[in-house]
Design a protein around this nucleic acid. Structure first.
Lengths: 267, 267
DNA sequence: CAGTGGTCTAGACCACACT
DNA sequence: GTGTGGTCTAGACCACTGC
C-alpha cells in the first residue's frame, strides 16, 4: 500500500498546505509522513481544538482520522512530547501540556536556592510594582516583532523568597494580545504567570531563549532588591515564544545570586 | 515468540546483571528490552569497545548479537542519540560521539558574542597560566567524589577572543586519571580540551551541570581579565561527568559579559 | 472489564553514501 | 549495486488506569 508524499485530504484539516508543493525549493522538500502528521496535530494545538490540560484523541482515533497507521501517529506524538508540547500518561491518554500543573510549576525559572530543593522555600511572594500601557521602544519592538511605537503592556514586579527580594523583572507584552490584563489580576492569580496567560488570554508559551550577563545594580534596581548600589546581579533577558514561534513576551530579569544560583544542565 | 524480562545471555556481554533480578524492590523493576539493550551498548561504550569517532556495528549486526529485532536495537540507539552519546548518519552508520568534530566544537561553551555567530571571531587564544599538582581541598574533593587531600591537577588558563581576554578558568582534575598532563600538552593541542582528554586519557565528558552567579572581579582575577576591580563577572561552576555519571572535572569560570553573553534555550 | 499508551516483531520499501 | 540508517505498516501482546 504505497502512498504519495502528501497525506490524504482530511475533513477537519485546517491548513491543507502541507506536503511537497510548498515553495520552490530545488530539493523536493521530502517530508516523512509522521512529520506531516505532526504538523497537522500542531495546527490543531494552535487553533485550540484541544485546550491545555485536555486529552487529545487516542492514537487509534488519530490514525483513523489521518488515514495512517497507529505507529506513524505514535512517532509524531513522540516528537511533540519530546518538545514538551504534550504529555503522555500511560493508561490515560495524551494531554496538552500546560503551565498550570503543580509538578512543572517553574519550568522556565532556572534560579534555585543554594541549599534545599527548588520550591522548598514555599511559594514566591509577588509584588506588582507597576503595570501600564506604553509605546514600544525600538529594541522592545524588535524583540516582539512589532512596529516601533505599537502599544505594549509594561509590568514590573519583585519576587521574594522567604521574605528576601530576589528577582526584579520587567516584562513587555503586546497589548493587542493581552487586553484587560491589570495589576490586580496579576496579583490575585494563584499559580504561574504563564498559566494566567493560558487561561485568560489563550496564549501558551512553549519555548524561550535567554541571554545572561553579569551587571552592577543601578537605575533604582538596587532599592527594590535591597542591595548596595553596584552589587553584581545576574541579568536574564528572555524572549518567550508561542506554538508558531511567534515572540509574545520580552522579560528582563535581575537575579540576586547570593543565596540562589542559575542552574543549567549541558548534554 | 514471547520472551522473559531478561534478555538472552550473550558472549560479549560484560555486566550480566541486567534484568529483573536486581535489588529487592517491591516493584519487579520491569525494564523494557530496548532499555536493557541500551544498557549493554552503554557498557561497550564505557569499556571502550568502540572509540570516539568510530562506527558502532550496524543495527542488524547488533540485533543478531543481542538476539532481538532490529526495531528494538533502533529504539535503544534512538535514546543514545538523543543523549548525544552516539551520532547517526544516514547511509553511513552510527558513530560514537566525540568532542573532536568541527561542527560541535564548543558543545559545552554557551558564551557567544553579542553580534555575529559563535566562532565567528576565529579560534580562541588559550594561555595556560598555571598547571600544577595539588591536594584537593574539601570542596574540590566533594565535587569530584575524592577524599580530601587526594592529588588533583589544578589548571588556570585565560581564553581570549579577538585579542580580548574574556574567560578565566580554574580547572581541577583527579590526578590519577590524567597522568602526564602538562601545560605544554595543553597549550600545544589543537582543538577542544575535551578532545585532548578523549585521545590522550580515554576520558569522555558526556554531561555537565553548571551553576551561574554574578560576582565582582577580585582576588587577582581582574588583572588577568584586564577589567576594573569589582567589575561584575559571570561565575560559572561546572561539574562534568563521564559515561558512568562519574564526576571527572570541576571547572570554575569567570566570564566577561560586556561583549559576550551566556545563551540558553528553555523548552 | 475495556480503553489507553508502551513494547516487540517481521517485513517492505525509501533515501543516502560509497564503490 | 550493496549496505547503511529512515520510514511505514500490521498485528500481537504488555502495563497501567478507571469503571
Amino acid at each position: 500500500m504505497r502512498r504519495p508524499l502528501s497525506i490524504h485530504s482530511e475533513t477537519s484539516s485546517v491548513g491543507g498546505g502541507m506536503g511537497a508543493t510548498e515553495g520552490l525549493a530545488q530539493t523536493p522538500a521530502f517530508s516523512p509522513l509522521y512529520q506531516q502528521i505532526k504538523g497537522l496535530i500542531l495546527q490543531s494545538l494552535r487553533v485550540g481544538e484541544w485546550k491545555p490540560g485536555e486529552a487529545i484523541p487516542s492514537e487509534m482515533e488519530l490514525a483513523v482520522r489521518f488515514r495512517v497507521s497507529q505507529g506513524t501517529v505514535r512517532k509524531a506524538i513522540d516528537e511533540l512530547a519530546a518538545e514538551n508540547l504534550v504529555v503522555r500518561r500511560q493508561g490515560k491518554g495524551t494531554f496538552v501540556a500546560t503551565h498550570s500543573e503543580q509538578h512543572v510549576q517553574f519550568r522556565f525559572l532556572k534560579l534555585v536556592p543554594d541549599s534545599g530543593t527548588p520550591g522548598s522555600e514555599g511559594p514566591a511572594q509577588r509584588d506588582i510594582i507597576e503595570c501600564r500601557r506604553a509605546r514600544a521602544s525600538s529594541d522592545v519592538a524588535r524583540a516582539l516583532a512589532l512596529r516601533s511605537g505599537d502599544t505594549v503592556l509594561q509590568i514590573r514586579r519583585v519576587l521574594s523568597f522567604g521574605g528576601t527580594p530576589t528577582i526584579l523583572e520587567d516584562i513587555w507584552l503586546p497589548a493587542a494580545s493581552f487586553k484587560g490584563l491589570t495589576a490586580e489580576r496579576l496579583a490575585n492569580f494563584q499559580g504561574p504567570t504563564y498559566a494566567l496567560f493560558e487561561t485568560e488570554f489563550n496564549v501558551r508559551m512553549v519555548r524561550a531563549e535567554e541571554k545572561l550577563r553579569a551587571e552592577p545594580a543601578g537605575e533604582g534596581r538596587e532599592k527594590l532588591l535591597k542591595v548596595e548600589h553596584g552589587t553584581p546581579l545576574l541579568s536574564v533577558e528572555r524572549i518567550a515564544y508561542t506554538y508558531k514561534d511567534v515572540p509574545m513576551e520580552l522579560r528582563r530579569g535581575y537575579y540576586r545570586t547570593d543565596t540562589h544560583h542559575y542552574h543549567n544542565t549541558l548534554s
